[in-house]
Amino acid sequence: MLSSNREKKQYQQLVEQKSPKTPLFRNMVVAFIVGGLICILGQILINYFIDRGMNLQDARGAETVILVFLAALFTGLGWYDRLGEFAGAGSIVPITGFANSIVSPAMEFKREGYVLGVGARMFTVAGPVLVYGTVISFFVGVITWLF
């Protein structure tokens, strides 16, 4: 039975009144701290590689590789989802969250085989980021070329 718009609106108000609010402030503080710690770790790695004689660009590459590896490892050990539940955007936004979003479906769909499972489903979460990231970089490229 579909209800009228007026009933739906009234009900929506009741639901909002009865639902616990997302603790936005707490979530933002935790996300800031955890996200910040991940970035500090990245910076420490960059500084370390520069100290060891790498140039900035290579040091950034090496840092990314290590963070992605750690995120993949922690996903495999079943720790990263717990971090995500605790930190929210703090562990989703950095590159480690991107790694987690690719490794977790890869693990999940292994049981459906390496081709139609892992291969086909690995980018179910990260796919949109890659697609629209590529589209945007195309337009940025065109703009750079024109001006």
Partner: peptide, 17 residues
């Protein structure tokens, strides 16, 4: 979880509801 929502090991935050 894997049918309706996200892969189990994906780190997502759930709403209080």
């Amino acid at each position: 979880e894997r049918q309706y929502r996200a892969p189990n090991e994906q780190g997502v935050k759930h709403k209080p509801t």
